[in-house]
Amino acid sequence: MAFRVQVRFTPQLRRFVEAPEPEVHADTPRAALEAVFADEPRLRSYLLDDQGELRQHVALFVDGKLLRKAEDLDRELEQECEIHFMQALSGG
């Protein structure tokens, strides 16, 4: 089931690429990302690797909770929420 999702990106990304923060309707974090990529395709390779997985050093938060597993990108959302894609402290 799709919910209203506010997507947020670390401001660090804007050093490299446009990162608009729309409100979208999505049933998973991945679907929310795809909705953003539709308007900003260059953003894809910054957040996802060649196999479509979240990059190792990009952190995913749903309503402030850090989700750590690869499969969390495809986890069903349970309610209207805010999703942050942040720069991990590792990987710099």
Binding site: F16, S45, Y46, R55, H57, A88, G91
Partner: peptide, 8 residues
Amino acid sequence: KLGHYGPK
């Protein structure tokens, strides 16, 4: 080789 965002 961006530490967080991959090769470019």
